[in-house]
Design a binder for these strands. Sequence first.
DNA 1: AATAACTGAGTTGTGCACAACTTAATTTCT
DNA 2: AGAAATTAAGTTGTGCACAACTCAGTTATT
Lengths: 152, 152
Amino acid sequence: MAEQPAGPVLDDQVCFALYAASRAVTALYRPLLDDLGLTYPQYLVLLALWEHDALTVKDLGRALQLDSGTLSPLLKRLEKLELVRRERRSDDERSVLVTLTAKGDELRAKAVPLPGLVGDAMGLDGPDLYELRTTLRELTDSVNAYRAALPQ
Amino acid sequence: MAEQPAGPVLDDQVCFALYAASRAVTALYRPLLDDLGLTYPQYLVLLALWEHDALTVKDLGRALQLDSGTLSPLLKRLEKLELVRRERRSDDERSVLVTLTAKGDELRAKAVPLPGLVGDAMGLDGPDLYELRTTLRELTDSVNAYRAALPQ
DNA sequence: AATAACTGAGTTGTGCACAACTTAATTTCT
DNA sequence: AGAAATTAAGTTGTGCACAACTCAGTTATT
């Protein structure tokens, strides 16, 4: 008979595998992003802006699943780096519109090779990567739906 | 012709899918762990200790892939909660052995239902979860091997 | 029109992560 | 044995994440 631990086991947990994988990939990006003067969450914000050009803090929060408590100081740092501008919308003074500066837009070209480099290091071929991404999205949606249905 | 964004796209990134999934699962654990008075990384440390009973800070770092800069203050908090003890090893005074207190050991029983609850919310069946875990481990190993091979 | 409810950002405080560094203990190399 | 290198923890400083809160602006209700 194999031993039966009287509790959950670390390496059995999908949650730990996710946590470890996410941190490993972020760590792989770090030296590449250092060259651009960015952190990983800052890079994600710029990814969203390179795609959409102008987004409110609210929009960014929806895209990245982050709240204003995280985004506000992060955006201030990006503004200090002169990569983005922040301005109140005139038609709704509650909203702050975040837009790329010329400098922020130019950084896009330097970021183009990054996903390829990181993809190579993952050791998965195209179809496996595609399937993994799909599974992760489904998992995230399922978990978030479950959370939204919880009391409170 | 579809538009071709002149740069990487947020939702295409496996790295973002990982980041979002990891945070969603952690967020799902949070209210459950609140009842035990634990954070998610603290829970991971206890998982390792429930399995092995006594580990050095170094061992914990290897198991969780965290360095002493993260673990030292975390373990101090667990000690203040009276869930673990920390003591220098007599045969090597550099090492600190972390062991469970009775209180820390008792918490194990309360943690038993957690993985099942979280597994349900993931919306994947057993085989899919198993495959995902395997893929994530391979990805983590591949990425870490790649990082270890980098200059410096 | 006045009030109530809601919304979007921002602030404060706690706890990770991680880089860079310090210190003390141990091991290795002359 | 003594110096140099290595190792294990811990400290300091920065930047997320996130809860809980504030505040100003907008919308809904009466």
